[in-house]
Design a binder for these strands. Structure first.
Lengths: 168, 168
DNA sequence: CTTGAATCATTCAAACTCAAACGATTGGAT
DNA sequence: ATCCAATCGTTTGAGTTTGAATGATTCAAG
């Protein structure tokens, strides 16, 4: 019996989980991106629109933290969203360093239509797992991505359970 | 009670799992990349070296399929690995369309040193989960990334348990 | 043998991402 | 009031990835 048998088992278990996790994520991101392309938007653009939709206007720095992206990245995504007329920049009066990003009516209509579609697509894909497996996946993956707050879900629940009023 | 309550619950469960999965994956990839940077290589470069290390020489097309990357991407990664003297291209005689990628002795020494380090780092990160959680994660994520074969793990196990002979 | 489809690698343009450098603005310390 | 550090958004350069176009090679059908 090799002296390092236990370490072996441990590494096997960890690496198996690691690889399967990343492959599953890649697979899902790929499917989600394809689905969103039909609506003419990027996954990154969707993420920004969704954050604004569920959390209201916010500055780019906050967006970057929420979405775990670099500031430069947010600048680019917001640029593209602005070109399409889905968001607008609004310099804050009290602190002119910040720029609040607002959904335009056009952008609000779009995300209000696309989000349920996207949610339905994800829900459909997740049907490959049982309810218990989904719960377990949520719990276990949550432990690994610890810093991550489920910001969008919090609001999503409220919105669905007792229709939140859209008047900011 | 809203009529769509059940669909709601379903979507909540699916989206929670989806988001946590992607965040966990991002977090792990980020940590893994940082760890590999110390060895002076990219995650993509590591993946290619690791595949060659555990599966032996293969052509770029096979690499692309194994690693779920585009052909153009593999060309670039192999270019960079070749510049560093870690792999060499060898045109096949029987089918001159294919180019087999071989580890150079230098590359073989490198991956033989780096892989255990990287495996140890992943193992360490995964300690945030219990053994049972790792098993569950492997199983559940495996269902989602279904097309994905655990090619490297298969060989990794053999190698560790009864030192496979390196003579191709 | 010749033609045409299929396979494989390369190249190129486009998009996305990050990190670092930069300029503008703010707020606190002196 | 002035200076200095911190914060915020933008720009730039480098790296990664994809998909489409291209060229080389193989194989099978006629």
């Amino acid at each position: 019996m090799p002296t390092h048998y236990k370490g072996c088992q441990e590494a096997e278990r960890a690496l198996s989980a690691y690889i399967n996790l990343i492959r599953a994520s890649d697979s899902l991101v790929s499917k989600a991106s394809t689905q969103l392309e039909q609506s003419g938007m990027t996954l990154g653009q969707f993420a920004v629109l969704e954050a604004l939709h569920h959390l209201g206007p916010m500055c780019q720095h906050t967006l970057a933290k929420k979405l775990l992206r670099s500031g430069g990245n947010i600048t680019l995504v917001v640029d593209n969203l602005e070109k399409r007329g889905w968001v607008r920049r609004e310099r804050q009066k009290d602190d002119r360093r910040m720029i609040q990003i607002h959904l335009t009516p056009k952008g609000a209509r779009l995300i209000a239509k696309v989000f349920p579609e996207h949610a339905a697509a994800i829900t459909q894909i997740m049907k490959e797992l049982t309810e218990q497996e989904q719960e377990e996946l949520r719990r276990i993956a949550g432990k690994l991505g610890h810093g991550a707050e489920n910001f969008c879900l919090e609001r999503f629940k409220k919105e669905q359970h007792h229709d939140s009023d859209p008047t900011k």
